[in-house]
């Protein structure tokens, strides 16, 4: 029986890919004032970024409840006897805790394993995709756990920000604190390291940022999976994909958008690439 793969909406896996690969996505919540929305389901990416930049209310985010996970576990337990949950970094969100806690709420013979990916966006997405592909070709749960643990250090997500104000305001600035307060306008470039947001460098224009992302990807000799994401600038994402298609087949590049929950911390105009290095 195929092992079922579950992840959260911060993996930025599009619904088409999720459907193809049989991945279940648990939405994280974003809240404007009193109103709570399920990430990507009750609020679209476009609508979210519009409100982020036009509303006077500042959004906040909330992890899925253990109950949310438990409901999904129960449903999947009817179809399979093994499932693997891969969540975003536990240092950014309590989603992992909810997923673990939910196991105690479900009475089932189905084996449920939860892994903290220590990363987010397509950095997480590519790990999940690799696991789902392996599950489809018959890998066991133990093999999948090994695969995910092996993929984690090979997964690299890099983001070019327009500003760090959203990240700082949301309290997720982590080690990038030192990039705050610059007196020149800069585009900070950040990555995920040990589960936390970490600085890489700074550039002074979006074009330089795109070049950095391009150079970052092409710096890897062997790429297994590649993803390009944007928040509000689809043309830039297409441009970058066009350039990257010289080093990696265009049809294999995942193109996605940065989810509203992540957008709460990145702000609009963020651009991101994720690479899963080949072994």
């Amino acid at each position: 029986m195929t092992v079922k793969i579950i992840t959260d909406s911060l993996s930025d896996i599009t619904s088409d890919i999720a459907k193809d690969l049989g991945i279940t996505i648990v939405p994280v919540y974003v809240r404007f004032g009193e109103k709570v929305y399920r990430d990507r389901i009750e609020i679209t990416t476009d609508e979210f970024y519009y409100r982020l930049t036009h509303d006077s209310t500042w959004p906040t985010t909330t992890q899925p409840t253990p109950y949310d996970f438990a409901e999904i576990y129960k449903k999947i337990a009817k179809e399979s006897d093994e499932m693997l949950v891969i969540t975003l970094s536990n240092k950014l969100s309590g989603t992992y805790e909810s997923a673990v806690h939910a196991k105690t709420l479900v009475e089932t013979k189905c084996r449920i394993e939860v892994i903290d990916s220590l990363t987010v966006v397509m950095g997480l997405g590519l790990i999940v995709i690799a696991a789902a592909k392996a599950a489809q070709s018959g890998a066991s749960l133990d093999e999948l756990i090994q695969l995910v643990n092996g993929a984690m250090p090979r997964s690299h997500a890099v983001m070019c920000f327009d500003t760090l104000k959203y990240l700082a305001k949301g309290g997720r600035i982590g080690k990038a604190q030192g990039l705050l307060g610059s007196l020149l306008s800069v585009n900070p470039i950040l990555t995920m390291k040990n589960g936390e947001v970490s600085p890489l460098t700074r550039v002074r224009s979006r074009a330089a940022g795109m070049k950095y992302l391009y150079d970052f990807v092409t710096g890897f000799p062997n790429i297994e999976e590649l993803a390009v994401e944007h928040a509000t600038t689809p043309d830039e994402a297409d441009d970058l994909i066009g350039r990257l298609s010289k080093v990696f087949p265009r049809e294999r590049i995942y193109r996605s958008t940065v989810s509203p929950v992540i957008g709460t911390y990145t702000g609009p105009n963020v651009l991101s690439v994720s690479v899963l290095e080949a072994i």
Partner: peptide, 11 residues
């Protein structure tokens, strides 16, 4: 100097 300082790579 500014360009060099900005390019500093934390990793």
């Amino acid at each position: 100097g500014v360009a060099a300082l900005l390019a500093f790579d934390y990793e």
